[in-house]
Design a protein around this nucleic acid. Structure first.
Lengths: 218, 218
DNA sequence: CTCATTTAGTACCGTACGGTACGGTTCGTT
DNA sequence: AACGAACCGTACCGTACGGTACTAAATGAG
């Protein structure tokens, strides 16, 4: 395609965006002033406006820049064994949790959500397209591979994905967005990744391939 | 206790808070100016500051006021039949979804999340205590009743509740917070309430009481 | 009727931020 | 060496908001 995707931002601009992300993480939106970004990044406000148009352009650029850093590597091509599928699901859940509990992700989500109520919610849409989109696609591909390998049984991949997501994340994302410390949340997460995958397989595993029909309760 | 809980706000103050909530819903946080609230509610800024201290106090009062409106009725006392438990779970899930997709709830969550990054996250804590707390307690009581009636099998009620919540809500709450229209989301929700309850019962139903060990996939 | 309290309405102040303009400097090109 | 582009630093402007002070009207008590 004609989108190089790498030189969307020059190195200088990337450094500025990185600095802006730092400011956002540690101070929230109200700390993200144009003057503050310029000072922190050792650049001039004039350059900011030349590069990003206005403040909203800067915010959008921050989201696009952060999204460009996550690589959406395709995990599976051929057939899967039972153990491979389970391992891949576990990896996906853990990666998902790592991303969601990341401070940059939380800060950007807070930013987008905070201004979603007002004008249009442009940032929210960006966040959904650039953030959730790729992650969902990756998961759907994995689930589809599981089905093609005869290990999973579902008709609507989106529905299955939502179930997996819900089992893995539950309300912890919103609670973190509301201020629950990521450490506390991560502790809860850790013990839940395996249970989520087990529960998902219990719900969507092809009947004859998974001999344990329900998860164990200690 | 010495907290009447009803006269926490005078009728006049309640009317003002109602007006403030309207402003917040339709314009987001940036539309919620002290002058705007005073104008919309036909009161003076001075009264606002006298009643609520400062702007943050007003925001906190809005959350407390909205929380005071949800009644946390105790649904069950005695033993439950299988059908009753399922019906109660379905009702809980539908109520939960209605609350989460309500415009006032979304606006208040956006407000709390938007300022959670910055100073302290006082509003976020309020939101967690006053909003999630009662709902979770109600669900836990229901789940416990189900267990006492021999219909559910779990050791950690919180864990079971999180599973139910995740199955019911998945990522739709965050997506609505990011700007997905509540109508679109509610359409997804409707078809998911029953699947969520079925999946939950499939996971946590006492083995000998629920003859269908796994949900059906059309 | 009179006085006291409360509150609406308004005017005002200080500040902080978004956005712009300008002088000075660095760096690459010819 | 001379020129020009890009850019940094800063100063500046307009505005909008949070918060306060003051006046006038309304309401209620004695």
């Amino acid at each position: 395609m004609s989108k190089p995707e790498q030189d969307q931002f020059s190195p200088r601009q990337s450094a500025v965006l990185e600095e802006a992300l730092s400011l956002l993480v540690e101070g929230g939106e109200k700390a993200l002033t144009t003057a503050g970004v310029a000072r922190a990044a050792n650049c001039s406000k004039e350059s900011l406006y030349k590069w990003f148009g206005d403040r909203d352009g800067l915010l959008a650029a921050m989201i696009a820049y952060q999204a460009s850093k996550v690589r959406t590597y395709e995990p599976t091509g051929g057939k899967l064994t039972r153990e491979e599928l389970r391992a891949h699901l576990l990896t996906f859940v853990r990666d998902l949790v790592d991303v969601l509990s990341g401070e940059v992700s939380l800060a950007l989500n807070r930013l987008s959500i905070g201004q979603a109520g007002a004008g249009g919610g442009k940032l929210g849409r960006l966040m959904l397209e650039r953030g959730r989109g790729p992650i969902g696609k990756r998961a759907m591909a994995l689930l589809d591979a599981g089905r093609r390998s005869g290990l999973l049984d579902f008709s609507d991949g989106g529905e299955a994905y939502q179930t997996l997501y819900g089992l893995a994340v539950s309300d912890l994302h919103v609670r973190m967005l509301l201020g629950v410390s990521p450490e506390t949340a991560r502790k809860e997460f850790g013990s839940r990744a395996e249970r989520a995958v087990d529960a998902f397989l219990s719900l969507y595993g092809a009947a004859n391939k998974w001999e344990e029909p329900r998860i164990r309760h200690a």
